[in-house]
Simulated assay, not measured.
Amino acid sequence: MKTISIMNHKGGTGKTTSSINIGAGLAKKGLKVLLLDIDSQANLTEGLGKGDPELSVYDSIRENKKLPILHVSENLDLVPSSIDLLGAEMEIVSKIGREQILNKLLKPVRPDYDYIIIDCPPSVGLLTVNAMVASDVILIPLLGEYFAYKGVDRLLGIVQEVRESLNEKLEIGGVFITQINPNRILTKTIVEKLTEDLQDKVFETKIRINVALAEAQLQGQTIFDYAPESYGAKDYEMLVDEILNRLN
């Protein structure tokens, strides 16, 4: 059983889209998957058609209640988020063991799943640190644009700090590039530069720009349900295969 955090301190990198479709791709292979949304924007929750839940991860964090788990589809479950989570970091900052809150909440449900995928906020605050403490692996989505990798060194440094002080088993699983336009001449240069800087941390699979990915979320569906023959579905299926190969 592995817990994976998908994180980037920048917004708009395809983090939530990737969380949804990596989780769905794993579930499609017969693996039991729990998606955990800890972003107060709740885009993952809404992108799976589960907006405005009665209970969310916020209630669990604030009141130490068991996680509210919603069934999405075969082999795929969700712990939803809500805008209430916006104030969670201020509420827990003075708690003893504040970095371990999420890890403790996940402990009872881990035996029920093969993978837990955590969609982190676009920042490196206390909730993101909680996710890193609860995780085995970090995956980082990067835009296929020049200078997209700026700040990644600092992010990798924070992961290392958490590993040294709070979670010695934490590993950086790799970086994958999203929103690639294969018709742009600049794209090849960008990919080469990212690979030169980050070396074997960069996944071979690249996620191409595909409007079906955005449309699927508007419909509250995964790409595999909405447009199974699209580039988006094919790219995420390949990415899931590469993730499994790397992790195993």
Rank of each mutant, 00 (worst) to 15 (best):
G220R: 05
I209T: 08
E237P: 06
K29N: 06
T187M: 15
I116E: 05
N167K: 14
E89Q: 07
F203W: 05
T222E: 05
D119T: 03
N8S: 03
E89V: 11
K201T: 10
G97I: 09
Y146K: 12
I180V: 13
P182F: 09
P53Q: 04
M1K: 12
I116L: 03
D112T: 13
F203M: 06
L186E: 12
E74Y: 09
G47R: 00
K95N: 10
D112I: 10
Q217A: 12
A131L: 04
A233G: 06
D52W: 09
T187K: 12
N43Q: 14
N210E: 03
D153T: 09
L170I: 11
L55S: 14
I177Q: 02
V137E: 07
I118V: 05
I117R: 00
P141W: 00
G97Y: 06
D225R: 11
L194C: 11
N248A: 10
K10T: 12
P182N: 05
S81F: 02
D112R: 14
P111C: 11
L244E: 07
P121M: 08
N210T: 07
F147C: 15
L102Q: 01
L70C: 03
Q160M: 14
V72M: 09
G157H: 08
G87D: 13
V57M: 01
I172F: 02
M132H: 08
M132A: 06
I4D: 05
I118A: 03
S19P: 05
A42W: 04
L86R: 15
K28P: 09
K104C: 06
I101W: 02
A233W: 01
T128H: 06
A216I: 03
E54Q: 15
I4P: 06
C120M: 02
